[in-house]
């Protein structure tokens, strides 16, 4: 048995009761999406679970170019959904195909991945690069950028992530995702997500995120700055990659050394930007 200290389990059907149950449950009570991470933790601290499975939070909607995703949507549902395929040349399925295995994606949820804040999450860097927003419920709905989940002091107790929205992107925007692994099914040794927006004048907006450094994905402002105002030529991309390699601090773990990761930062940022740039040209030409 994995969760040996579990003595209460509830599957509420409305958000208000869910929040109430979490608050009543106290310290040992956790929100459960698919439960994969909770089961894996095997934690003795977990005494109660509030399963979000009864809250009808599994949906994907195209809202005029924006894509709204219920927190309980599984990674497979999102991967297979036409709205995801249509969004920025399918960058979301491109990322999701690299997450775990089909067996995992068939259960793991978008919300669980975002809230769990695994430093190697693939969803987080891409969704942040895309500028996703979210709705939290703690008795009432609160909206904000998903970035708030990753602020130092972020703390979700008693709060439920209900929805994530990938915003409608202006014309001339492209994005790409890159992940380096030791084998087909592995968490990232390093991952990278990039979004660029270009106008006549050149690049007007750039977002570059690097994750699994091995710390949680973070923006790389120097790389972004190196791109804005340029024509996104090979030399501009190379400059951004150099800036990223300088800026991103990397560490050792069993997947790679810091030195190797730093080399990957440069390769990853380059490849990600090149792919985004290709997509941009595909759109404009």
């Amino acid at each position: 048995m994995q969760l040996t200290h579990l003595h209460s389990y509830a599957r509420p059907t409305d958000l208000e009761s869910a929040v109430e149950l979490i608050r009543e449950g106290g310290r040992g009570t956790r929100v459960m999406a698919a439960g994969t991470d909770l089961i894996l933790s095997g934690s003795d601290e977990i005494t109660g679970l509030v399963d979000l499975g009864g809250l009808a939070l599994s949906y994907i909607e195209d809202r005029g170019g924006a894509v709204a995703i219920g927190a309980m949507t599984t990674l497979t549902e999102l991967l297979e959904h036409p709205a995801a395929a249509a969004y920025l040349d399918g960058v979301v399925p491109e990322m999701l195909r690299r997450v775990g295995s089909p067996l995992l994606r068939n259960v793991a949820t978008v919300g669980g991945n975002l809230v769990r804040r695994q430093p190697w999450s693939d969803v987080i860097p891409l969704f942040r690069a895309l500028g996703a927003s979210m709705t939290l419920f703690d008795g009432e709905d609160r909206s904000g950028p998903i970035d708030d989940l990753y602020a130092e002091a972020a703390h979700l107790t008693g709060t439920i992530l209900t929805e994530v929205v990938l915003p409608r992107q202006p014309a001339g925007t492209a994005a790409a995702f890159w992940k380096f692994t030791r084998s087909a099914v592995d968490i990232a040794t390093l991952n990278c997500a990039a979004l660029i927006q270009a106008q006549e004048s050149g690049c007007v907006r750039a977002r570059v995120f690097v994750g699994a450094t091995p710390r949680l994905a973070a923006a790389v402002p120097s790389a972004e700055a190196a791109l804005v105002g340029t024509d996104l030529s090979a030399s501009a991309i190379a400059a951004a990659a150099r800036a990223a390699a300088d800026e991103v601090s990397t560490g050792d773990d069993l997947r790679a050394t810091a030195a190797y990761r730093t080399r990957l930062v440069s390769v990853g940022v380059t490849r990600c930007l090149e792919k985004a740039q290709e997509r941009l040209e595909g759109v404009t030409s």
């Binding site: 295995s101 030791r182 084998s183 087909a184 099914v185 592995d186 968490i187 069993l254």
Partner: peptide
């Protein structure tokens, strides 16, 4: 198998020790 300075196996799971899967 990665062994720590104290002789401990650092990657004793299929999550961390990678045997080939079909796409590999």
């Amino acid at each position: 198998m990665l062994i720590s300075d104290h002789g401990r196996v650092r990657n004793p799971t299929f999550f961390d020790y990678k045997i080939p899967a079909a796409p590999d």
